[in-house]
Design a protein around this nucleic acid. Structure first.
Lengths: 221, 221
DNA sequence: GTCTATAGCCCGATAGAC
DNA sequence: GTCTATCGGGCTATAGAC
């Protein structure tokens, strides 16, 4: 008890430790992520971000020396979280059906749990990836190409229909991504403020159905 | 001959006429559309747009009194072009298969022919439709709701499988829209500068295949 | 690490002559 | 309709005291 109190006092006098700084940086990044998603890069001022974490803008610039560096960190974190959440299509000995089902689940769950980050990434791509192009080239594209190779392997093995593997991946990406990027429009159609668990469940069921129906050999034209 | 020359001289001295002004405004809107798509609303300065149509920024403000008014006109034109290009799902006595095929074709063609406009609209939605929300509510949402009703009618008549009509529309929108919004990423995967006719043909074939396989009653889970 | 102060720039928009 | 000139404000970033 006393020890705890002392420890607290010591921590207090010793100024913020590493953990506190990490937490603060994580907080800044989270708030920046939301701001960039809502107003775009140029539409967001570092003063606004600083205010949302109760810092002065000069103080924010102590932690992130420039706005671009902060923006890059936001995108880095989004990409890392995305790469971490996506299971490889081919890691285990799953059937194409099971592998694709869990792939779609994971990607859709990411849209649900990281809507701001998904949108920041989406806006970066829409505007031509002028800032983050190299990182996308080096870290995202190879993963997508790998996934396409899996599709081709499955086709060669006769496990799925001979659909266009590249565009199949594009459509899966598009459908799952849109549940973050276009949720505003979806909410207007559905007349609700936020997409619910039920909406995501319905989306998952349909997207899985669509993809499985597409790769089903019986359905080939 | 002489008459033509005279007419030309007269036009020159009489200063720009209505037609010229219309053409100039259309030019401004086209350049603004591209700029907003590439840099976002806040990332685009009216000086940049003015320069691209060889006007001073003060002169541009003579034609469009504020930046917001110009932005709205860009979105108005995009929406009008989109509404004009989309055939109603139920206008003629088409089968669900034929109606959906031409629907997908039209939407995809719009992504191809109006990539900048599609992206401006996409960014507006991603950022929460903070500016254009009312117009989307009044002009886009009713159309989407109508389309969903058609799906429901087809289901009730047993013409298509009992899939979730709302989310089917969302996925069609997502897939077709992404060929404008995410073309940068697609080009990086495909290792080319621009999506080609072949790419759009492959996309169209796959998306049509996916949707037709999905609504096929034989495939129902 | 946090503060005050400010440099230096770009922006949207306006005023008024021609 | 087009020009010059400019206002007023917001922005990123830096300098330097504490």
């Amino acid at each position: 008890m006393n020890q705890t109190k002392t420890a607290t006092r010591v921590q207090k006098s010793k100024k913020p430790n590493t953990l506190n700084r990490d937490n603060l940086e994580a907080d800044i990044i989270a708030k920046a992520e939301q701001a960039f998603a809502e107003f775009g890069y140029e539409g967001t001022s570092i003063a606004t971000i600083a205010e949302s974490v109760a810092l002065s803008k000069q103080n924010l610039l102590y932690y992130f020396p420039t706005k671009q560096i902060l923006y890059k960190r936001v995108l880095d974190d989004v990409m890392q979280a995305w790469l971490g959440s996506m299971t490889k299509l081919a890691t285990e000995n799953l059937s194409p059906q099971d592998a694709l089902t869990s792939y779609i689940k994971a990607k859709l769950q990411f849209s649900r749990e990281h809507p701001w980050g998904s949108r920041v990434y989406g806006m970066e791509v829409i505007t031509g990836a002028q800032f983050y192009r190299n990182e996308i080239k080096e870290k995202v594209i190879p993963v997508l190409r790998q996934d396409i190779l899996i599709f081709e392997k499955w086709i060669a093995e006769g496990k799925i229909a001979a659909i266009d593997p590249t565009h199949l991946l594009f459509t899966i990406w598009a459908m799952t991504q849109s549940y973050a990027d276009f949720s505003t429009q979806m909410c207007l159609v559905l007349n609700r403020k936020k997409l619910s668990t039920k909406d995501f469940d319905a989306a998952e069921k349909l997207i899985v159905d669509m993809v499985l129906a597409t790769i089903s050999i019986a359905n080939q034209r």
